[in-house]
């Protein structure tokens, strides 16, 4: 019982540490094609690690 509880807690913790979203990198054209196919907007995040 105790083991199962710890396992569940670890799973929860692992889920919390996962990135909040999936960000594509690589070809923008592939990302655009995906946006078109799914009827969504493509959000491009331009960022610099220093700021």
């Amino acid at each position: 019982m105790k083991k199962a509880f710890i396992f569940g807690f670890v799973l929860l913790l692992f889920a919390a540490l996962l990135p909040a979203q999936t960000w594509l990198t690589g070809s923008v054209d592939d990302a655009l094609a995906k946006a078109k196919a799914q009827g969504k907007l493509l959000l491009l995040d331009f960022f610099a690690s220093s700021g």
Partner: peptide
């Protein structure tokens, strides 16, 4: 913002997300 689970689901559901890092 991005790392906050409160907004993550909304972004994932409504946009195709692409990241362009400088450098």
């Amino acid at each position: 913002y991005y790392d906050n689970p409160k907004y993550g689901k909304f972004l994932e559901e409504n946009f195709i997300l692409y990241r362009a890092p400088r450098g």
